[in-house]
Design a protein around this nucleic acid. Structure first.
Lengths: 112, 112
DNA sequence: AATATATACCTATTGGTTCAAGGTATGTAC
DNA sequence: GTACATACCTTGAACCAATAGGTATATATT
């Protein structure tokens, strides 16, 4: 009954995160800075967003985690699985779709 | 205290709506179809989204409403005020900013 | 004449995402 | 030894949008 679809623009944090991990394995704290960087400060996702997404993606089998001790500190490195790569592709094309839709709407005849 | 910023991608429904009304005055039910059309079906906002946004924008002075009776039925036509046009511009550049940020992240070195 | 569908307005409730804030712990710089 | 950066994590609230419902009139269908 009360079954609600996710808002049409959700999943962008997940998209950015997967995209970063597609480049190379990274750990959570690193992702926070990395995403802020590659988006040119346009998007800044806090740890409160990153960590839960990482955990849920791992539970889902889209990511695999690997603990590494570096300088006496523990880091959890994440990398994509095959499932994760597929998920990234799906999110990419979804984003492409809505991004194009909005662009079309903004360009329409508004420039007159 | 518990002051939370709006989610970074919100306000897109409002943006699309204002953009449509910048072309010509329209009524709510019309906007629902119009937005679905101009976005190439990519985005479909229901009446439950449109009407509340219209009302809040009117309360805010960004829109002005005008009732018209057409074929025995009442329509409420909305058009932009100066404040609404300013708001549209702000939302446009905000969108541009995050859109560019995401594009940059997706293009970054991912093409290797 | 009755029923269904499209127009046209509206609201309340849910539900999912994100945000801010805090909480722990170790290493390094002053 | 105090402060700051690193590195992990969770809880709570806030917010937006999606579904679903609710009213009413006109038109098309049977």
């Amino acid at each position: 009954m009360g079954q609600t679809n996710p808002p049409f623009m959700s999943g962008v944090p997940e998209l950015l995160l997967l995209q970063q991990l597609a480049q190379r394995e990274m750990y959570g704290y690193e992702l926070v800075r990395s995403i802020r960087l590659v988006t040119g400060e346009a998007i800044s996702l806090g740890e409160g967003v990153i960590y839960p997404v990482l955990h849920s993606l791992e539970r889902n089998g889209a990511l695999k985690a690997k603990r590494k001790a570096v300088a006496g500190r523990t880091r959890v490195y994440y990398s994509l699985t095959a499932k994760g790569r597929k998920r990234l592709q799906r999110l990419q094309s979804e984003w492409q779709r809505i991004q194009s839709g909005i662009t079309a709407a903004l360009e329409s005849p508004g420039h007159a």
